[in-house]
């Protein structure tokens, strides 16, 4: 996995925005390397900066509110952050596609599913109407919505929520993107549908050799789909490694505590661990570790000096002064 060149490299990404006249920090140093044919899970609680990371990649940060401070996002070695809007637009939907949490809101209610697929194809692939239509039909069959053209002519409100998410996936993969960003795509679905959509995404990834950034707050979903995981806390990536290593041998106390908070049948009857304290205030810019105020193993050093995000073991990055001790928690 790590042998090939990464498709997308995000380095030290910092983003801030104005909140009630004060500056608030949305991302305080995000480093992620994303590869083709690999599902990279990005896990963190709400407000930790998952969606902002995703939106930064496709250049869709809300313009007025968010200010990019520093960092770099490279796609196939070329910097994305300095690109013009027009150049970024040619990437979006064709090379990097996105699916979202609530398909009901992210599909336009006034147009048929077919039209919403066709317009994307026509924009990026330069096909004419009938070619685009034929392709849209194939795509719907591919995501399991049949090829009788019924869904093609349907409006979003005529579909069930699982079908809507499949339709959104069809739009996303319509131009054979190299990379797919999936922002909590299963959170609004029930467990059965969730499993089906995860399976579909996995199949499509294998078939198209796509890279996937799978955003979720749910570690059990991440465990099911991801090859590699990055854990984000308060706008900073605190740990990144393969899914087996992360679940087997976490090297950041936050990850360790997150893992302990997953309900587990084998630990039935025991209390679920909750992480004490509150998430770091976005307006704060501590000189020490962002997790130190809630960390059960924090020492003086943790409040004084921010740990660098480095490899502690082969292919296992962590931003903790005491990474080796985290698994003992």
């Amino acid at each position: 996995m790590g042998a090939a060149e990464p498709l997308i490299v995000i380095e030290n990404l910092r983003v801030e925005f104005a909140q009630d006249g004060q500056r608030a920090i949305a991302l305080r140093g995000v480093d992620i390397s994303l590869y083709k044919n690999e599902v990279h899970g990005l896990v963190g609680e709400s407000g930790s900066g998952k969606t902002i990371t995703a939106m930064s990649i496709v250049g869709l940060l809300p313009r007025q509110a968010l200010k990019l401070l520093s960092g770099s996002i490279r796609y196939e070695g070329r910097e994305l952050l300095s690109r013009s809007e027009e150049e970024l637009r040619s990437y979006r939907g064709s090379k990097i596609a996105m699916i979202f949490q609530e398909p009901a809101k992210y599909l336009n209610p006034a147009f048929t599913v077919g039209e919403q697929i066709r317009e994307t194809i026509r924009e990026h692939m330069g096909l004419d109407r009938s070619q685009a239509n034929a392709r849209a039909r194939e795509l719907l069959a591919l995501v399991g919505l049949g090829n009788d053209g019924r869904v093609l002519a349907a409006y979003p409100h005529e579909l069930s929520s699982g079908m809507k998410q499949r339709a959104m996936i069809a739009i996303a993969i319509s131009c054979n993107p190299d990379f797919l960003i999936a922002d909590e795509p299963t959170t609004s679905l029930d467990v059965t549908l969730q499993a089906q959509i995860l399976k579909l995404l996995r199949t499509l990834k294998d078939m198209k050799k796509m890279g996937v950034l799978f955003i979720s707050h749910d570690l059990s979903v991440i465990k099911e789909i991801a090859d590699r995981v990055s854990v984000i806390y308060a706008g900073k990536i605190v740990e990144s490694t393969s899914v087996t290593r992360l679940f087997g041998h976490p090297m950041h106390p936050y990850t360790r505590l997150l893992l302990m908070s997953i309900p587990d049948a084998r630990r039935k009857g025991r209390r679920l661990a909750a992480i004490a304290g509150q998430v770091l205030d976005a307006r704060a810019d501590p000189q020490g570790c962002v997790f130190a105020p809630r960390c059960p193993m924090a020492r003086d050093l943790c409040f004084k000096e921010s740990p660098t995000f480095i490899a502690h073991e082969q292919d296992h990055m962590s931003a903790c002064h005491f990474a080796e001790e985290a698994w003992k928690l």
């Binding site: 637009r89 006034a110 317009e119 739009i171």
Partner: peptide, 26 residues
């Protein structure tokens, strides 16, 4: 300000199409 506008942008559609087709019809 609706979510489907974000989705349309993520599809790489030109801003004019997003305004006059997607938003205006609604």
């Amino acid at each position: 300000s609706k979510e489907y506008i974000v989705a349309a942008r993520a599809k790489g559609l030109p801003e004019t199409l997003i305004r006059y087709k997607h938003a205006l019809k609604n």
